[in-house]
Computed example of a mutant assay.
Amino acid sequence: MQNILKGFINIFFPLVCNACKNLLSDNENFICTDCRHKLPVTNFHHNNDKSIENVLYGRVAVENGTALLRFEKQGTVQYLIHQLKYGGNEKVGEFFGKWLGAELNNLENYANIDMVIPVPLHPKKLKKRGYNQVEKFGKEIANALQINYTDDILIKVSASLKSQATKKRLERWQLNNELFDVNNIEQLNNKHILLVDDIITTGNTLESCCIQLQKAKNIKISIACMAIA
């Protein structure tokens, strides 16, 4: 009966791949098998790759770092994340979160994570967009690891500047460091936090978040992103 109902619905509301827009088969979900196999997977967490840690080397201490995919201009990953951030397609974050969460759940390096915390949006941007694009990504990882997802400790208190490209590194660090703050920091004492974001490029945002989180006593921080540029 369920298969009949599903088939009837597909006649009028066909399920298509969110990447190539071709019809999905019965055993496919969100994106087709062909598109999924073509995604540039990093395997950082499987290969003990230090690319994320190297981006932040000498800036903040990170226990573990991973990104599910490589961000390539004009590629499928860019298209999907654009749909997530600007097209209202929150299922992108959900899909990536379930995928990465299932993989991290089987790894010793991520077995002692206590809490997942997202890089926050400024309240004005959150109100305008209606959601934090990292929320469902982080929640699915938290579900897989069977730990709490907490979005009210790390907060964004200032809107990001449009461009910092011409500023020196110290100036950028000082400005970024003023963007974030923490509430009830004692909740993080002696905890291992997984900080999640969509894309890591220069690492400036993650660095600023880590600096605020490190106000907690004896805290450990690991990082998980959807993609690395």
Rank of each mutant, 00 (worst) to 15 (best):
E108V: 07
C225V: 00
P14A: 05
G101C: 14
K217M: 06
L170I: 12
C225K: 00
C225L: 00
G93I: 08
K127D: 07
I147E: 03
E171S: 07
I221M: 02
T202P: 11
Y79L: 13
S158K: 14
A61H: 15
W173E: 15
E53C: 10
V41F: 12
K125M: 08
L195G: 06
A67F: 01
K124I: 14
S222H: 03
L194C: 14
I185W: 08
L154E: 09
C35G: 14
I117R: 02
T150I: 04
N43E: 09
K167S: 06
R172S: 12
S160Y: 12
T76L: 13
N10E: 15
S51W: 09
V196Q: 00
K128D: 14
G87A: 01
D198I: 01
D198A: 04
Q214K: 14
I81T: 06
D114K: 02
W173A: 14
L206M: 08
L188T: 13
R70D: 10
L161T: 12
V182N: 13
I9T: 13
F30L: 02
I113C: 10
G58V: 11
P40C: 15
A159L: 11
D198C: 01
Q146W: 02
L145A: 11
L84E: 01
L126G: 04
I199P: 08
T201P: 10
I153N: 09
